[in-house]
Design a protein around this nucleic acid. Structure first.
Lengths: 199, 199
DNA sequence: ACGATACGGAACGTATCCGTATCGATATGA
DNA sequence: TCATATCGATACGGATACGTTCCGTATCGT
């Protein structure tokens, strides 16, 4: 028993960690540059990574498995609200929408939209990214209600959609070319807080 | 002069109107069933339409032109607000978001999202569909301000995003599985009208 | 040093698609 | 009747991608 646990290291040359990294990075780069999940090719990935195709097929059984693993890398931690006023926390959370840690995510996420519609796994993947962020926002809203800063009769889930939707369609769909993304979070939060009805 | 205008009918067998229709319908069907713009094939379209490939190439110079024409069919007229109260009109408009005349549009539109990000033509196509609907909502909001039902200091464009965003992310992205799409329009409109701040 | 395994690179066979060409059959006008 | 152009079907060449399999080389444990 020379090794800790049963990590019997197999003989021969160990697999290059550098190749592992390069393959995944190349995949994400290509996706961010405009390839879609269906048009991206293993050959392009290999070429971009400076790696032989065989090296890829030694690690993954096929393109789908590789893409699944690569996309999993994009999942960052949900942002932590500072815990100041409810308004400040909401602005923090809303600003983070579609503004991921990995800048490539902003380009890649829209590519997953069509996929989601038909693949339950892709939808589950999407939800696994979105849910933690929803949870953070939900907590801030509940705190606001608890401390009396927000009304008690609001629908939390609908309110989250009201805060998230505008940012998401603007950042993902470029919905309205005339909107300024930089100031949108603050305007949306204040808009939702105040309402638009005359009084 | 036997013909009205200069419609000199060419000799030979006239083109089948039935084939015209079948080709476009087959294209939209395939897109709605999961094909993306890039993976759909002329051969699949021809097979589905019960048509020879040559029949397609006799009408369109290539796949792109066919897709453009087919997608243009999905563009319905923007909904006409009834002209009642601002609240009622907004609910009408918000309910119509992502709720197109052709039910296939709901499946097809998300497919265009990735395309939009890189193709200026696709983005222009998307805007040509969205802008009339935005214009209708803008008009309702301006009317509300004019008639004193809405505050005069609201940002019209941001308000439109607040009304549109929640419906769009729910209908297109299935953003939150717990939200009820049927009642969402009314809740969003009332939420935006009233605001959530305690007072 | 030696065996074992990985490496990058290249080629291969299969499959699919595009756009074009060709076929016999069919429908229209002269 | 006859020329003409379309019909659906099929085949083709060129291109691309997949997944596999071979090189010759590099790097590990023993």
């Amino acid at each position: 028993m020379t090794s800790t646990a049963d990590a019997a290291r197999p003989p021969g040359r160990p697999r290059s960690v550098r190749a592992d990294e390069a393959i995944v990075e190349a995949t994400l780069d290509l996706l961010a540059e405009g390839s879609t999940i269906e048009t991206i090719s293993v050959e392009a990935i290999a070429a971009r990574a400076g790696v032989g195709k065989a090296t890829i097929y030694r690690r993954w059984p096929g393109k789908d498995a590789l893409l699944r693993d690569a996309l999993r890398r994009l999942k960052g931690d949900p942002p932590q609200p500072s815990g100041g006023s409810v308004r400040e926390d909401l602005i923090t959370l809303v600003s983070a929408i579609g503004h991921n840690v990995d800048p490539r995510a902003a380009q890649i996420m829209p590519c997953l939209v069509p996929e989601m519609k038909r693949s339950p796994e892709q939808y589950a993947f999407y939800q696994s990214i979105v849910e933690p962020r929803r949870a953070a926002m939900r907590e801030v809203l509940r705190r606001g209600v608890r401390e009396g800063e927000l009304r008690a009769d609001i629908d939390i889930e609908v309110t989250m959609a009201m805060l998230t939707g505008p940012m998401l369609i603007q950042r993902v769909l470029n919905w309205n070319p005339d909107l300024d993304e930089a100031t949108l979070p603050e305007k949306v939060v204040d808009g939702v807080l105040a309402g638009i009805r005359a009084r």
